[in-house]
Nucleic acid binder design. Sequence first.
DNA 1: AATGTTTTTGCGTATTTATGCAGTATTAAA
DNA 2: TTTAATACTGCATAAATACGCAAAAACATT
Lengths: 248, 248
Amino acid sequence: MLKRERHAYIMHEIDIHNKVLSSDLSIQLTVSEDTIRRDLQELDEKGNLTKVHGGALSKSFHFTLRNNIVYSQPEKRIIAQKARELIQDGMLVLLSGGTTIIELIKSLPPELNATFITVSIPTALELLDHPNIEVIFIGNKLLKNAQMSVGAEVVLRLAEIQCDLCFLGTNSIDVDHGITDLELEVIEVKKAMIRSAKKTVSLSISKKLNTVQRMVVCKIEEVDILITELDPGDELLKTFKKAGIEIL
Amino acid sequence: MLKRERHAYIMHEIDIHNKVLSSDLSIQLTVSEDTIRRDLQELDEKGNLTKVHGGALSKSFHFTLRNNIVYSQPEKRIIAQKARELIQDGMLVLLSGGTTIIELIKSLPPELNATFITVSIPTALELLDHPNIEVIFIGNKLLKNAQMSVGAEVVLRLAEIQCDLCFLGTNSIDVDHGITDLELEVIEVKKAMIRSAKKTVSLSISKKLNTVQRMVVCKIEEVDILITELDPGDELLKTFKKAGIEIL
DNA sequence: AATGTTTTTGCGTATTTATGCAGTATTAAA
DNA sequence: TTTAATACTGCATAAATACGCAAAAACATT
């Protein structure tokens, strides 16, 4: 087996399980642990995974959630303020997960009367806090780290829906590669969300602009509106504007 | 389990509960307390938490370790201990909402390998905390105060399922009136849950025994097992035993 | 095809890391 | 103050890793 194939196999394992053990891989691929260790080292240097003692973990494996919330909260507040202007009474709105979305929900005026659909447990919990809005959760198998429903059932049920707006808390957005993400199962659902909505809105702090992850959620043309904490005239946003995206 | 994974688990616990006990973590992660102590020390040095005698606290919120604000009453712990004995590897288990259920989930051994189905958002969130178990959420319209899915769609989907056990966090149970509750929509779902399970287990602190609410969920005969914090021989439980219910 | 070069791989050995244990010291709760 | 829980120290062990080296494989060149 070629090195390339091993690398592909390892990344596949990482995609599915979010972790690999050197010892396991050594047996599965019938090579020495030294080789595996060197493979993991290379993949780490390329930024495809995080090597740790005993194996490797997916890049999406982070445990500083709370610190992140506190850290970029002001930016996310600004984004939330802009985003909420788009939501009007009577609308049917699709929401993803993520801290930016949570911030958006917190900023919704209490008198708003709309229906929100989501697949994310924390998003649902935050939505339930609001007095007027109706909340619909599309359930199925829940993904541990993303805390959201995934799987074919979710995709199918999303296909039956026609929403006015879809807000995506975006990890990575880039003019050439579009919106990208890490986990296969998450991407399946996000794709379905985009298909079910008349307009797709990407919420993204400026740090995440022009970054790319491993797997594609959608091309840049499929994004209708991009909201960042920056001024719409900012230099960083020019390329997105040129690609025909409305900037708020 | 890799050290990094342990660290992630610990930080996740901190994010949710604002505190962790070394003794708990040692059991949950099946490593010695020494290891946990070293983990906490490292995470402290990295600035992710504050280590204290007996465990660790969140950096952002400074509670003391042993106040009962976060952790709940001892009665519910006792009930949880008894209830978890019923759950075995490979089982399909249906859970309602409520703090007793949350306590049950917290007490589940980390090596347990089972599938849990629920309609309650807080229950789902707690289940996601567990390293091994699979979580399925049955979604639909969410009810604000109960924080759970309700409606015909939920009832229909429950009807398609055949579970081994159904645990109900019970508000009111009485020999003559059975399990009773307040809201119509909640009752519809609880009825469906009972129908889908081979055995129904009612979790109830003794205060709630022999109380009645407005609407009936099920007759007393439909309850297979009743779990309270009392000794099974307790006087209070005699009438239930006479009604043919197994008491734990 | 023959040759030289580079890359890849596995092995032995030394080193580092991770973890648990036992005994003692310390802390905090009753 | 007493007592039980928790922490620390040093040590033992096993697992994982780094390093140098040599064989093997892949590749390039003639």
